[in-house]
Design a protein around this nucleic acid. Structure first.
Lengths: 167, 167
DNA sequence: TTAAACTTTCAAAAATTATTGAAAGTTTAT
DNA sequence: ATAAACTTTCAATAATTTTTGAAAGTTTAA
């Protein structure tokens, strides 16, 4: 496989993985493109490479900046804006995990807490609802905590030794 | 909040969380309904409760069974089929993590391995592609491993002590 | 202040994904 | 073998999400 094929394969695979971390295809592809680029890219560059419209590029770049994954790079003397993505995978993972937690997991935890706190009226179905949503609440909270803590270890050694521990 | 409101809130929240674990709304809602039900439910019951069509119910129940989360329950003397879901959250999480890994993460790991193994032709861009996809490959593999291992601990104490370790 | 270079916005169109419902299929009882 | 009770399938439709492209907006240079 040559460079161009590998690049296309990587960008499209990473794009389709977007759903896994809750973003759309174009957004994931733009990030992928920046991730393997040796230099900042302009909107032109991205549109051309991914064959997507200017509007689409603009909107998705904005979202990526909202996520804190992509930053605008001002190149002195240049009129155009250039973009780069976080190049360190650990840091990237940390940012994504944090954002997903904030955007999606926290609100669910809140609802689960609410629902599992309703008054026990003594009926079997109420008892079951409370019991099951409480269990889900605990699990979700623990998992969220763990992901955030693991992923925020900047040094990799802790992760590695943890992995050994649980093997 | 009374039982009915709590139930509706839980089912719809869990449904919208479907995207987080990669399944559609109806599928997640059916699972939610079964999760808090004190007894197995028939297709009729589910259709009526969620106000969805017979076809939709049938297809999504099938998918839930494919995931290994829902099982058919035969009730002696009854003609209808009844359904239940895994009631233990730890086991549920284990099953979901395993399936997602198999369906989505493994194929990506495979592509990352492929792409990061292309021949280094000495150019800067090729070096960058190889370096970055390799880093992503390692991260993805480690994360996948970790999630699977953590989640497959049936006893909760390990999880708890791990959490303490990394706090 | 003007105009060129560039970016953002957003209504409309296209693409994708989910849902319906009725016909076809299956199982069970008699 | 028949019919009733039930489930599955799938083409058509509906809902949702993504993308486009052109007009409006912004910034910079002269």
């Amino acid at each position: 496989m040559n460079y161009d094929d590998a690049k296309i394969k990587f960008v499209s695979t990473w794009g389709s993985l977007g759903s896994l971390w809750g973003i759309n295809k174009a957004m994931a592809q733009i990030q992928a493109l920046l991730f393997i680029s040796t230099k900042p890219l302009s909107m032109e560059d991205i549109m051309e490479d991914l064959k997507i419209s200017r509007g689409n590029t603009s909107m998705n770049l904005r979202q990526l900046m909202d996520w804190g994954i992509v930053t605008k790079e001002i190149i002195p003397g240049e009129r155009k804006e250039y973009f780069t993505t976080e190049k360190d995978v650990q840091e990237l993972a940390r940012t994504i995990a944090k954002e997903r937690s904030r955007r999606e997991i926290q609100p669910v935890i809140k609802v689960l807490k609410e629902v599992s706190s309703i008054k026990d009226d003594g009926t079997e179905k109420t008892k079951e609802l409370i019991k099951q949503t409480k269990a889900l609440h605990d699990l979700t909270e623990t998992a969220d905590d763990m992901i955030n803590k693991l992923v925020s270890q900047k040094q990799n050694w802790i992760t590695k030794s943890l992995l050994k521990l649980i093997k």
